[in-house]
């Protein structure tokens, strides 16, 4: 499993498309920083077939007032769990 991180809002940047293109069915995607704007239900269509493999960083959601608004399909993790994901991944690729 490769862990991909994305820190750009899908409203501003199409880099998320590059991240998705680079992913296999085994890979995971973690939304951090402005990337967490992609957690809103209205953005759910951006992440097809990522059920169970799409994560968002709780502290970046919380600072933006988005914890309660986050889609149910996204797994919200804290910073320690972010580190745990990098332990499980064979490598980490950052999209920004």
């Amino acid at each position: 499993m490769i862990l991909h991180t994305l820190n750009r809002s899908p409203l501003d940047s199409s880099v998320y498309l590059q991240a998705l293109a680079a992913m296999t069915e085994a890979d995971c995607l973690l939304l951090i920083e402005d990337g967490v704007l992609g957690c809103l239900p209205a953005q759910a269509g951006r992440w097809p077939q990522l059920t169970g493999r799409l994560f968002a960083l709780r502290e970046d959601l919380a600072s933006r007032g988005l914890v309660d608004a986050c889609s149910d399909s996204i797994t919200v993790i804290d910073i320690q769990e972010f580190v745990a994901l990098t332990e499980q991944a064979t490598k980490v690729v950052s999209w920004y």
Binding site: I2, A21, A22, M23, T24, D27, K91, V93, S94, W95, Y96
Partner: peptide, 17 residues
Amino acid sequence: DSGGVAQLMACHSLVMT
């Protein structure tokens, strides 16, 4: 293509963007 990009990621031990 997209599949080739994913394979490149897999077959290099280190990826820098």
